[in-house]
Simulated assay, not measured.
Amino acid sequence: MKDTIEKKDTIEKKDGFTIHHGTYSDRIYVMSYNPSETKKMLDYVRKLGEDKAYGKIIIKARETDRVLLLDAGFTKEGEIEGYYKGTDPCLFMVKYLKPDRRGVRKKAKILDGIDKAKEKKTNLDDFKWPNYTFRSLGEEDIKQMIKVYEEVFQSYPFPIYDPNYIKKTMTEDCQYFGVFDQESLIGLSTCEINHKEKNVEMTDFAVLPTYRGHKLAKALLIIMEKAMIEQGISTHYTIARSQSLPMNMTFSSLGYHYGGTLWNNTQIAGNIESMNIWVKQIIE
């Protein structure tokens, strides 16, 4: 098992807010918070950032807190429209605590990739369904899931190599989908569902290198969308690696629109990378 298992950040729940922080991604990520505790949350993460000398703070914020965060030195890097019950947006408000965290490697290439992905037109008329077996995943699949993750990701911001972590997420807010070549799992993805706010993050796409180029990620995404629509989840989004042009194009080709880039944001595949937001709202 990979040595990256022990290199993970901490998820901390405190006073109505949940944060993910540590030296692995060198950041504080406020994943959720109670609007009545916004000032308390802000004071806490600013002090934590100073005490731990982290490089970045990122907050999934509400529109009503935009001015407060702007006055505190934050700027907006991205947005998910309809994040809260299909109506109010989620703003990704950020503050850089280290000057070198602002410097983006290959920024021109990233921006060019975004433009190329935006140009990808939605067209399923010529989509040929891959000749493999697709199904939802359960506890009996965890061992194979970890093997795929270990081969695909050199590092990851959450402990996806830990069977106990995966088992726990299955009982909470995650639904997993996989593609098989006979009995062997060759690719998978995750729906991380926020039932309260009726949104879902389409995430953790992993396809074994020898099976790439067969549109398996697109097929998985189509299956995920259908499952989420049936469960009444109206806002679908992803936070995709900016350096993975095929993944960005996959979302754009299924009608997702660009919601911004989180620069130097996430430890993944061996480096801290910038991440692109793609959003799709299902109007019934």
Rank of each mutant, 00 (worst) to 15 (best):
I11K: 02
D15N: 15
I19K: 13
H20W: 07
H20E: 05
T23P: 01
Y24H: 13
Y29G: 09
Y33T: 13
N34P: 06
T38Q: 07
T38D: 00
M41C: 15
L42C: 07
D43V: 08
D43A: 15
D43L: 15
V45Q: 03
G49S: 11
D51E: 14
A53M: 15
G55N: 05
I59Q: 01
I59G: 02
K60Y: 00
A61C: 06
T64C: 07
R66V: 11
K76D: 04
G78P: 06
Y83D: 03
K85L: 13
G86P: 05
T87K: 12
T87W: 00
P89C: 05
C90W: 01
R105D: 00
A108I: 05
I110H: 02
L111W: 03
K116I: 05
A117K: 02
K118G: 01
K118I: 11
K118D: 01
E119Q: 13
E119H: 15
K120R: 14
K121W: 01
L124D: 00
K128I: 10
W129K: 15
Y132I: 07
T133I: 13
F134M: 12
G138A: 02
G138H: 01
D141N: 09
K143Q: 00
M145H: 05
M145P: 09
K147Q: 14
Q154N: 12
S155K: 03
Y156R: 06
P163S: 11
I166Q: 01
M170W: 01
V179D: 03
F180P: 08
D181N: 15
D181F: 09
L188A: 09
I193D: 03
N194D: 14
H195Q: 04
K196C: 09
V200T: 11
E201Y: 04
M202W: 01
M202T: 04
T203F: 01
F205Y: 12
L208M: 12
R212W: 06
H214Q: 14
L216C: 06
L216F: 00
L216R: 02
A217F: 00
K218E: 02
I222K: 12
I223Q: 15
M224K: 10
I229E: 04
Q231L: 07
Q231I: 02
Y237V: 02
I239E: 07
I239Y: 02
P246Q: 08
S253H: 04
L254F: 02
G255M: 03
G259Q: 01
W263K: 11
N265W: 00
T266D: 01
Q267K: 14
E273H: 05
M275F: 04
M275L: 09
N276V: 02
W278A: 03
